[in-house]
Nucleic acid binder design. Sequence first.
DNA 1: TCCGGCTAGGTGTACAATGCACCTATCTGG
DNA 2: CCAGATAGGTGCATTGTACACCTAGCCGGA
Lengths: 139, 139
Amino acid sequence: MKQPTRTSTEEPQGGLPRNYLRASLLLLIAETPAHGYDLLEQIAQLGLRNVDPGGLYRALRVMEQDGLVASWWEHSTAGPARRSYRLTEEGVEWLHAWAGALREGRRYLSAYLSRYDRIVDDDSDPAPSARKEGLEIIP
Amino acid sequence: MKQPTRTSTEEPQGGLPRNYLRASLLLLIAETPAHGYDLLEQIAQLGLRNVDPGGLYRALRVMEQDGLVASWWEHSTAGPARRSYRLTEEGVEWLHAWAGALREGRRYLSAYLSRYDRIVDDDSDPAPSARKEGLEIIP
DNA sequence: TCCGGCTAGGTGTACAATGCACCTATCTGG
DNA sequence: CCAGATAGGTGCATTGTACACCTAGCCGGA
């Protein structure tokens, strides 16, 4: 709080990985081929609230240049034409790679959080009571 | 694989959040006040392998400018002088904020991964066998 | 004695990702 | 006929991260 006029270090709205936007798009398209606007609405389910549309469309085109997705136009009878995307084989491989990286990332987040919980507990509970014993589950 | 000459989308070495370096430094310093080089060696435990020293020292000084940490010189008898860091009260608040953000991030990673697992399972197991029922554990 | 290597801290710079503002066009309903 | 939803997009500034490179103190071996 206070004045956020400082510099960076501003509270990030999520704590989500870099390139998580791309990873999310890969997953959503893998589930069902879709167009940008559709993905824009779905993507909040994966933690990306307030995604800016420009960035999303931009990401999709970069991913197409990189050969992860392929697109085609769909001229629906109602509403503007839409550019739909499906995964390429390379895109599928990248999705697997991303899933692996994110799973690893989650492990490290758990390590972080259990260390954090430890110092918070030690800090607010200096009494040597018998509570909380044998809870060393660190996934 | 292939030629990574493309542009971005390069396999990131971790899938960890932006600013995770800062968050990790806050945690480690909260555990024990330390100097940069020390932190450089410890930080791999939290998932940051091959951290570049320059970036770490830079991050520490930015955090000091932002008032999250405070530093002092320690002139040890052996070896070069070292600048040690401790958390300020504001730093502690930020640590709590970060822990909250990372916990939320982990929830979304789990959502991502369970959706991923679902499409992988559906894909490699089209037989309507009775295996895997009632396993909706989403931590 | 000098040299390599470890400890310790740092700069300069380029690039990719992100965020913000803004723009176009189509179609529908009041 | 105009507001608002749908659909796609550009330009630009800021940030974080990565890579390369530099200084200096101290130690041990050749």
